[in-house]
């Protein structure tokens, strides 16, 4: 363990040197682009959403040049550690297992609640069939609960499964489901309790990139302090959302 800390420190030093050498370092921001309101592709074909606006602001405060990169969710962490981009800013919840492999900044979104949505109030979310996206913390939660888990590749399909009766309920981030429930005109309703999962949403970085992490941490702190982060949260997630 000690050895590990030593190498990390040594690397921080050399990474710092590399930064000093490459003066105007471009930071590549990796995101998924399929998870509104966090990040999505807008009508013009650009990455848009809460994290786009947040990320641009953070880069401005940290005085970095940022570039946005889209990457598939499944390979988003392997591509980060392999160096294809420098940060993940994709609505990624801070969990212990992810933290073993990558580092997170402090959270820029308070610990989120996941929720069940179903076609009617009577749906059995406890022991029925519950849809979730493959390889998410929600899927892991359902697998351990009493319900029968059915996994789909995309969040879109999980909601579709409830609409067409394949599943009794869908379990996902409340913020992802909220606009869909609002606009469904009663076809979808929230049921059951909200379940707090994960430790808030943070930006993911390589464990060796301590310099960059410090810069973003400072930027997030300053946004929290002057209230701009809260403004952004309310803008994208509505009045009722949790703020700092």
């Amino acid at each position: 363990m000690k050895k590990l800390i030593l190498t990390t420190a040594a690397l921080a030093l050399s990474a710092g040197m590399a930064f000093a050498a490459g003066h105007s370092q471009t930071v590549r921001m990796g995101t998924e682009g399929a998870y509104p309101p966090y990040n999505f592709i807008n009508d013009a074909g650009e990455i848009d959403g809460f994290e786009r606006e947040l990320g641009d602001e953070l880069c401005k405060r940290a005085e970095l040049t940022c570039e946005w990169v889209k990457n598939d969710w499944d390979s988003i962490i392997p591509n980060l550690v392999s160096g294809n981009y420098d940060t993940i800013i994709a609505g990624m919840s801070i969990t212990a297992e992810r933290d073993e492999v990558i580092d997170f900044t402090q959270d820029y979104f308070p610990p989120t609640a996941s929720a069940y949505a179903a076609a009617s109030d009577a749906a059995d979310w406890e022991n029925g069939v519950v849809a979730a996206q493959t390889a998410t913390i929600q899927a892991g939660h359902i697998a351990e609960s009493g319900a029968a888990l059915v996994e789909f590749a995309t969040p879109e399909e999980t909601v579709a499964a409830v609409r067409n009766g394949e599943a009794d309920a869908v379990f996902a981030d409340r913020d992802y489901l909220a606009p869909l429930v609002d606009e469904s005109g009663g076809a979808l309703v929230f049921i059951g309790p909200d379940v707090p999962l994960g430790g808030g949403v943070g930006m993911g970085l390589r464990e060796s990139d301590t310099e960059l992490k410090a810069k973003f941490d400072a930027a997030i702190t300053s946004m929290k302090a002057d209230g701009t982060l809260n403004t952004l949260l309310v803008k994208w997630f509505g009045e009722g959302t949790a703020t700092y």
Partner: peptide, 25 residues
């Protein structure tokens, strides 16, 4: 003199990056 693999990180020097970090998108 740093190892290339550190835990799960794969780190090469800036000049060896393909394409370079400063290159346009």
């Amino acid at each position: 003199d740093q190892p290339i693999r550190q835990g799960s990180d794969f780190i090469v020097c800036q000049a060896a990056k393909l394409p370079l970090g400063t290159d346009p998108q």
